[in-house]
Design a protein around this nucleic acid. Structure first.
Length: 230
DNA sequence: GCGACAG
DNA sequence: ATCTTGTCGC
């Protein structure tokens, strides 16, 4: 395990086919259930923006799970060469996330990512990949569909329908976080199951479509970006 | 060959 | 993700 983890961290310079091979190997290490000693005290929200085509800006916000008070907020700018390729998002946003994460003093109990978890062509979306590297529970909340079949959920907040792979296995859910608004596609990243991913996403999608942790990270990502360009 | 395709 | 103001609808 440790060997694999280390290799990954120093193997970001990959071409597409090598990256795909890596995803296929890593997905077998995912654990889809909460740790026995899981306690939710703080939650992290992650988001990445691009002030310039090859310059990324990552923000990680840590909130109190009980009060949503912001405990910590860190950001990091970095040159990014890996292009956006559907299915390989973690190779584009993963490096900057890990660099940003190194600036974090606290240790969040759960991470919310902007993208898929296991609802991915090779079962290893951004949330799953990062969860594995951190060895922490993570949830993927994507704004649009990438992989899996589903029926549209009801129009009321809280209604959802299962996201299934081609073998009819449930890999996530399409959840309505706001009545009459487009649903979000959630799936477990690592160290969590579909049911809890669903409950926690709904619990933290207080007033908006996107859950608070990720939403706040996104707001700051846009705000800090202006600080530079203007 | 055709359509789909996280951010 | 990003380029971009006002505007129609819940």
């Amino acid at each position: 395990m440790v060997m694999i983890m280390n290799n990954v961290k120093f193997d970001w310079e990959l071409d597409a086919s090598t990256a795909i091979a890596l995803q296929k190997r890593l997905c077998s290490h995912l654990i889809l259930e909460l740790p026995e000693d899981f306690e939710l005290k703080t939650i992290a929200g992650v988001d990445v923006s691009f002030p310039e085509p090859k310059t990324g800006l990552c923000v990680i916000v840590v909130l109190s799970a009980a009060t949503l008070e912001v405990f910590e907020l860190v950001h990091h700018f970095m040159k990014i060469d890996f292009p956006y390729i559907s299915g390989l998002l973690s190779f584009r946003e993963g490096p900057i996330f890990m660099k940003t994460h190194a600036k974090l003093k606290s240790k969040p109990d759960l991470y919310f990512f902007d993208g898929q978890g296991i609802a991915h062509p090779r079962g290893l979306g951004l949330a799953s990949h990062m969860g594995l590297l951190l060895n922490k529970p993570s949830i993927g909340v994507a704004k649009s569909h990438l992989y899996g079949s589903y029926e549209p959920p009801g129009p009321v907040k809280g209604q959802w329908s299962p996201l299934k792979d081609y073998n009819d296995n449930t890999i996530g859910a399409v959840l309505r976080t706001r009545t009459n608004k487009k649903p979000v596609f959630i799936s477990p990243g690592h160290l969590i199951d579909v049911k809890h991913s669903l409950e926690l996403t709904l619990k933290y999608a207080i007033k908006y479509r996107i859950p608070e942790p990720t939403r706040l990270a996104h707001i700051w990502t846009q705000k800090l970006k202006r600080t530079i360009s203007t």
